[in-house]
Amino acid sequence: MTVPDAARTAGAASSRALGATRAMQRRRRAGSTMTVLIWAAAGLSLLPLVLIAGHLLVGGVRVLTPTFFTALPAPPGVAGGGVANGIAGTLVLIALASVIGLPVGLGAGLYLAEHRSTRLATIVRYLSDVLSGLPSIVLGIFAWEVVVRPSGQFSALAGGFALGMIMIPLVARATEEMVRLVPVALSEAALALGFTRWRTSLSIVLRTALPGIVTAALVAVARVAGETAPLLFTAFGTPYWSLRVDQPIAALPLQIYNYAMSPYDDWRAQAWGGALVLIVLVLVISMLARRATRSRFASASGGAVND
C-alpha cells in the first residue's frame, strides 16, 4: 500500500464517519424537536388547570364569608345569601348514593376478585367498564323513570339513586383491584384453619384490603359529588332548607348551575363561591382517598396501589 493510497483510505473512512455523524445529528435533532413538542404538549395541557384554579380563587374568595356557609340562598338583590342547604343537600345525596351504590359495588368487586376468570366475571368486568363510560344524564333519566315518575315527585331519594347507579361500576372495579392485592396465602391460611368462605372473605380479605376499599369508595364519592346532570330531574333542587329524602333537595352543583345561568350579577358572583366550595370538597375527598391507601397498604403491596 502506497502512502497516497493509505491517505485516500483514511480520507474515505473519515468522510464516511462524517456522514454517519451527520445522520446522527439529524436523528438527534429530530429527537430534540419531538422532545420540545412533547414538553410543550404537557405544559399546554396543564395550562387550563392553572387558569381555572386562578379564576376560581379570584372569583370565589370574594364571596366566601361565614354567612355564605350558614345562610340559605337569598333572592337576587338581597345581600348575604349562602349555600348552606346546598352543602347539606350534597352531603345527604352522597350518603344516599353510598348506601345504594357501595354494597352492590363491593359485592360485585368481591365476586370479580374471587371468580376471576369465569365467563360471568369476564362479562361483568367488561360491562362495568362500559357502564362507567355512559353519560350520567342517561342514568338521571333512568332514575326519573323508575323513582320520580311512580312516586309523582322529585326527591332526594331519586337523586341518591341516580348517583348510586353511577357509583356501582366504579366501586366494583376498584374493589376488585384492591382485593386482588391481598396475598392469597392469607386466605389459604384462613381456609386451612377451618374458616368458612364468608368469614375468610369478611375478616381476612376485606379487612386486609380495607384501606384500599376505603380509597375506592372515596374516589367514587368524589366523582359523584360534583355530578350535576343526573340531579337536574331527580333531586331537582330547592331554595329552602330540606333534608327529607322524599322531597326535592338542594345540591351544590345544581345551585352553581342555576346561579351561573341566572341574569343577576350577585347570583353569578355566588356561583364562583359555590364552585370553589365544591372543588375544595371534591379535592378533600380525593386527598383522603389517597391518604387512606398510603398509610398502611402501600408499603405492604410494594407501592403498586397508587400507580
Binding site: I52, A260, R268, A275
Partner: peptide, 22 residues
Amino acid sequence: VAFLVDVLAAIPSVVYGLWALY
C-alpha cells in the same frame, strides 16, 4: 404531572361550564 392531570379530571363538569361561560 400525572397527579395534576388527575386533578384536571376531578374538576366537576359544572365548574368547567362556569369557567368557560365567564
